[in-house]
Simulated assay, not measured.
Amino acid sequence: MRQQERLGLILDRLAKHGTVSVLDLTTELSASPASIRRDLKALEDQQLLKRTHGGAVAAEVIYELPMRYRTGRHQEEKNRIAQAAARLVTDSVHSVGLGGGTTTTELARALGSVGRSLKVVTNALNIAGDLSVRSAIDLVVTGGSVRPESYELVGPIADRALAGIHLDLVFLGVDGIDATGGISTHDEVEAQTDHCLMQTATRVVVLADSSKVGNRAFTRIAPIEEVAMLITDSAAGAPDLERLRAAGVEVITV
């Protein structure tokens, strides 16, 4: 297992339990105690945890998990969601928008591997990098201020670049989706740019694994009425999905 994946799993465990031990992590991650201690030090240096004798505890301040550490979490589910989303891009779809996130990144890779002509607009630097070498993709990148946690370009420059654009489909990753709270993310500037991207679309499709369903993050991106479809995995809670359907969202589970 790569160190980056281990770091993400350690932070995931901390978020759930508040504490981790070197002994438990050694067994769970099939790594040596020395490797786990180096991992904990690397995370402490970024103020993402506080080391203790024999382990670590969660930092007093809750930080948004950087995207590089989210890669690998719920990966199988995200791959299935991305494949289902790619099937929506039929021959009648000529333009799509892709927001940032791990699941939209998987979707970008799926679309890039097909080889069909398609215009893609994105504000995500990593997605732009993946698609820039695909000759069939007509790629448009918004510009804007870089948000390191998500590799997204956000702010007024990005918002202005999206004004006046029309896209057939927009695929958006979120940190929370809830029937009454709408869709949400951790950063208010990112939320504004995401909403500008949504406004370019004939249809908005949210891609979110089950850990996001029924949750609300810090800032609302848009009310649920602006979402046409949610693609999630089968572990999402049935009551949450029923409330979303009742609110008019088409829900696909994979």
Rank of each mutant, 00 (worst) to 15 (best):
A58S: 11
E60Y: 07
V61W: 08
I62C: 12
E64T: 02
E64Y: 06
P66H: 05
P66K: 10
P66S: 09
M67V: 09
M67E: 08
R70H: 03
T71R: 15
T71D: 04
T71P: 00
R73L: 14
H74D: 01
E77R: 06
K78Y: 02
K78M: 05
N79R: 14
R80M: 09
A82K: 02
A82L: 04
Q83M: 05
Q83W: 03
A85E: 08
A85H: 04
A86F: 05
R87Q: 14
L88W: 03
V89A: 12
V93W: 00
V93S: 12
V93M: 10
V93I: 15
H94G: 15
S95H: 02
V96F: 00
G97D: 01
G97L: 06
G97C: 09
L98V: 13
G99K: 03
G99T: 09
T102H: 00
T102K: 00
T102F: 02
T103L: 10
T103K: 09
T103D: 13
T105G: 15
E106N: 07
E106M: 12
A108K: 07
A108P: 12
A108H: 03
A110P: 07
L111H: 00
L111N: 08
G112Y: 04
S113D: 13
S117R: 14
S117W: 02
S117F: 07
L118E: 03
L118I: 10
V120L: 08
V120G: 08
V120I: 15
V121D: 01
V121N: 02
V121E: 08
V121G: 04
T122V: 11
A128G: 15
A128K: 06
G129D: 10
D130F: 06
L131N: 05
L131V: 09
R134T: 11
S135L: 11
I137V: 11
L139R: 06
T142C: 12
T142P: 15
T142S: 14
G144L: 08
G144N: 03
V146D: 02
V146N: 05
R147W: 01
R147L: 14
R147E: 06
Y151N: 11
L153T: 05
L153S: 08
L153I: 04
V154R: 00
V154F: 00
V154N: 10
V154L: 03
G155V: 01
G155H: 06
G155T: 02
P156V: 08
I157Q: 14
A158W: 02
D159R: 10
R160N: 12
A161S: 15
L162V: 07
L162S: 11
A163H: 03
A163T: 11
I165L: 15
I165W: 00
H166I: 07
L167N: 06
L167T: 02
D168W: 06
D168G: 13
D168V: 07
D168N: 14
V170R: 00
V170H: 05
F171H: 04
F171N: 08
F171L: 11
L172I: 14
G173W: 00
V174Y: 01
V174D: 07
D175P: 00
G176D: 07
D178L: 14
A179E: 01
T180G: 06
T180P: 01
T180V: 14
T180A: 14
G181A: 15
I183E: 02
I183K: 02
I183F: 03
S184C: 08
E188Q: 05
E188N: 13
E190S: 12
E190A: 13
A191M: 06
A191L: 10
A191T: 11
Q192S: 13
T193H: 07
T193A: 11
